[in-house]
Every structure is written in structure tokens, then in C-alpha cells.
């Protein structure tokens, strides 16, 4: 692999990955029941959806943006596909993909246009679309519940299938994250995102079309959120008005824990994937170690706060060190 790519990986993803491996080993040592591989499989299944969404979210956080509307988009798509299948006695894969891409792109275009071209803060805009989409979703879903028997066979097949022992869901997320990481590290488009997040005015000065990049990344993230709606359906074979509720924060947490700093300019989709798995692994480890399941979310939250603070403290430290160096007598 080329120098730059390995360097990026060496800088930010490795500590998270090591933490993950240590955690898994510890859990396996302390709890024999975890060793069978079933535990790992469960972790991968549970983290797939978050990792999939994190691939798109990472692009935005790298540019100092955020998209909180993804949970609404994913939920709406999963319901629409399920509902269409229920009303028409089944639905084909291309039809489902069309729904996912169309809905996702529509939300992404609204977000992207408002943020990139009207220069509105992405936090506010995507909170707005989170509500708007969730409201439309609730309006359509009402009291409707889509259950497994209304869904075509391929949905359940993907949801429970695996390749070489790795759950299909995770394979899908892994493929997306690998592809996205290649885009991020090896295309000019991807590199532009880092430049924008690292120093926005300078990015404009060197001629990077900042607004176009922002718009495109939001649309891409919308489409990924739409496709995540399919994953949601695969995972649960069930859809109602609460589908996907609240997962946006886990997506952001996965990114931040995986090294995609909220301050922008750093991190990759692979890092976010590792972050997603680590988040889930902690939940499982706590359970496997007999810690009450009720601690799990609190620990995840504490970890997120620590990840944010850690980045900052490291930055402060290096600043102080450099100031001391500058003081050296001339």
C-alpha cells in the first residue's frame, strides 16, 4: 500500500483497533461463553448498520459538518419498502434500491443545498430535516406495522445469511467502508474533503470548489442513509413508525471514537467502522462480564466524551511542547 495511505492509517485507526482487539481478548478470557465465535458474530451484526451509516457521515465530519437526519431517512426507507411489499405481495431488489436511492437523494439534496449554497449550519438544517422526514414517516406509517411474513424471502435471507462465517450485513458495511476509504485516501475528490475540513478558507484559496464538495457529500450521505434503510429491514424483518429512531448519535459516536475528529480534517471510513464495532463490543463485553446491561449506554457515552476530550488534550499538549521549543535561546 502506498506511503500516504499507511501513514494515515498508522496515525489514527491503529489505537482504536488495538483497543478493540484487547477488549475482545479480555472478554474471551474472562467469559468462556464468548469464545465460540457466536459472540463476535453478534457484535458484527449489531454494528453493521452503524458502520454503514458512518461511512457517509465520516465524509461530512471530515469537512466539519454533521448530518443528524440519517436515522429518519433510513427509517422512512425501511418502512416504505416494507409497506410496498405488504401492499403488492412482495417487492424486487431493483424496486427497493430505487426507493432507497430516491428517498435518500431527496433528503440529501435538501440538506446539501441548504448547507452548501445557503451556508446554513449543518447541525440546525439536519435537525430540521430529521424532524421533517420523521414527521412524514410517522404520518405515512400511522399505526401500520410491517412484519416478516409481508416481506419477500430475499430480505430475511440477507438478514440472516453469512459469507465464510461473516454475517452478510457486516460484509455489506465492510465493502462500503473499504470503498469509501479508498475514495477518501486516493482520489482528489476525497483529498479535497480533508483540505476543506483542515482549513476552510485556505481550501477556497487554492481553488477547491468547497460548496460543490459539500453538496455532493451531503447527497452521497443521503443515499447511504437510504440504503441503510434496507439494512434496517434486513436486520429486523420488521418496520413501524419507530424504525431507526435515535441511531444518528451512535453513528456520530462511531465516527468520533474511530478517529474522525469533530474538528475536521482527519479520519477515515475504516476508522469509523472500527469505532462502530468497538462501541458494540463494549456493550457485549459488559454483558459478558456480568455488568448490568443498563451501564452499556452510559459507558458508550462516557467513551464518546473521552474520545472528544482526548483529541483536544493531545492537541494542547503538542502546542505547549512546540511553544517550549520556540523558547529555546537563539
Amino acid at each position: 500500500m502506498s506511503g500516504g495511505l499507511s501513514r494515515v492509517a498508522r496515525l489514527r485507526e491503529v489505537p482504536v483497533l488495538s483497543a478493540l482487539i484487547v477488549l475482545l481478548l479480555l472478554t474471551a478470557i474472562l467469559n468462556p461463553a464468548f469464545r465460540g465465535g457466536e459472540g463476535l458474530k453478534a457484535i458484527l451484526i449489531e454494528s453493521a448498520l452503524i458502520a454503514f451509516l458512518a461511512a457517509g457521515q465520516a465524509n461530512l465530519i471530515i469537512m466539519r459538518h454533521i448530518d443528524l437526519s440519517v436515522s429518519s431517512t433510513a427509517g422512512l426507507v425501511s418502512f416504505l419498502i416494507g409497506n410496498t411489499s405488504m401492499n403488492n405481495m412482495g417487492i424486487s431488489v431493483p424496486q427497493s434500491l430505487m426507493i432507497a436511492v430516491a428517498v435518500g437523494a431527496a433528503v440529501g439534496i435538501v440538506n446539501g443545498a441548504l448547507v452548501a449554497y445557503l451556508k446554513l449550519p449543518s447541525l440546525v438544517v439536519t435537525i430540521g430535516t430529521l424532524y421533517l422526514v420523521r414527521g412524514i414517516f410517522n404520518y405515512l406509517a400511522g399505526g401500520v406495522t410491517v412484519t416478516a411474513d409481508a416481506l419477500p424471502g430475499w430480505v430475511a435471507a440477507i438478514g440472516s445469511g453469512s459469507i465464510l462465517g461473516v454475517p452478510d450485513l457486516f460484509v455489506i458495511a465492510l465493502i462500503l467502508c473499504v470503498l469509501m476509504t479508498i475514495v477518501q485516501t486516493s482520489t482528489r475528490w476525497g483529498r479535497d474533503l480533508y483540505a476543506i475540513g483542515s482549513n476552510p478558507p485556505a481550501a477556497a484559496r487554492v481553488g477547491i470548489p468547497v460548496a460543490h464538495r459539500e453538496f455532493a457529500a451531503f447527497v452521497l450521505n443521503g443515499i447511504i442513509a437510504g440504503l441503510a434503510g434496507m439494512l434496517l429491514l434486513f436486520r429486523f424483518s420488521f418496520a413501524d413508525a419507530t424504525a431507526g429512531l435515535g441511531i444518528e448519535l451512535y453513528v456520530v459516536a462511531a465516527c468520533v471514537i474511530g478517529g474522525v475528529a469533530i474538528a475536521g480534517g482527519v479520519g477515515t471510513a475504516m476508522g469509523a467502522l472500527i469505532g462502530a464495532v468497538l462501541l458494540q463490543a463494549i456493550t457485549f463485553a459488559l454483558g459478558a462480564l456480568g455488568v448490568s446491561q443498563f451501564w452499556q449506554q452510559a459507558v458508550a457515552g462516557a467513551l464518546l466524551v473521552l474520545a472528544i476530550a482526548f483529541d483536544r488534550i493531545v492537541a494542547l499538549r503538542s502546542t505547549q511542547r512546540i511553544n517550549r521549543l520556540a523558547e529555546a535561546p537563539v
Partner: peptide
């Protein structure tokens, strides 16, 4: 960033 983190933390503590 901080309050996205504490949002999750405080909610988690509710379950605790």
C-alpha cells in the same frame, strides 16, 4: 461535540 457526548452519557446514566 461535548454535548452530543454527554447527551449519550446522561441518558445512559438514566438507565443505570
Amino acid at each position: 461535540a461535548v454535548t452530543i457526548g454527554t447527551l449519550a452519557l446522561y441518558r445512559g446514566l438514566c438507565y443505570v
